[in-house]
Design a protein around this nucleic acid. Sequence first.
DNA 1: TTCCATGCAAAGTGTTTGCAATAAT
DNA 2: ATTATTGCAAACACTTTGCATGGAA
Lengths: 150, 150
Amino acid sequence: MSDLLTRLRARGWHLTAQRRAVAEVLHGEHLHLTADEIHERAVGVLPEISRATVYNTLRELVEMGEVLELSADGKARRFDPNVTETHQHLVCRGCGALFDVPSPDVSELAPPRAHRHGFTIDAVEIVYRGLCPSCQAEPVRPPDGRRPAG
Amino acid sequence: MSDLLTRLRARGWHLTAQRRAVAEVLHGEHLHLTADEIHERAVGVLPEISRATVYNTLRELVEMGEVLELSADGKARRFDPNVTETHQHLVCRGCGALFDVPSPDVSELAPPRAHRHGFTIDAVEIVYRGLCPSCQAEPVRPPDGRRPAG
DNA sequence: TTCCATGCAAAGTGTTTGCAATAAT
DNA sequence: ATTATTGCAAACACTTTGCATGGAA
């Protein structure tokens, strides 16, 4: 419900100028920035903030459960401030574009106990993969312009 | 059905000693090795094989659709040779252990057209996150032994 | 001969860490 | 005073790339 900054204040987290800058960058619901993008934007707010502090802060936010970490694209992690509404992600194979989508009912999806290897399960994450409109037009265009074999 | 090496032969792929070594390492159904682990094992078969060749070969196999790439843990990618049976993955938050689980019926899970942002969707990937039996015993023990804040 | 695959080493990303300086209680 | 946080730079882990060599068609 409330935004990240409000939740952090409510939780009594020690809010330095740097941590506030990161939290401000993460304001919003449909944001999926990489750590470096967050650093770039945080520099706009607080010019002397360092990459290390951004990484440290993000790690802490993830550990506190106030930010989600997405590893949908194998490359840089993305950070998602929307932890209050369960949702899933749509990812373009061509350009990596990433969108939130509402979650279907996942209560029936967990594997039967016989296949759980003794695990407890606390989250069901779904990634829908496909092509965004512009990558449908020009077949697959990976970052380097190479074509897939096939 | 058939194993990777057989499929590659059937497809007429130019099978050098190096590519064969990689394919042999990837023999099996429930394997989720990183590129470096694959290189290590391939060296056991063909001592002079280089990392670059392993990476190149893996990229080609993924592009051909003969191997799946998993990015479930944000760190190193893992390569999954089981492309013949749709399945999903169970991942431990504590130690990163990763298991295959049978896929539930995903035909009803795709988001309604209104939420697809014009994407085509060709795959639905599910990651179940939780704790494996040994990480349940000793709370969370990330690779470096640090405890999450709480 | 022509082309493709390989190996090496270097460069490129993305991320973490050691440590001294600084700011907060 | 004491403790926590920051910034810097170096270290690290993972992956890709340029180029000369070598083998296959």
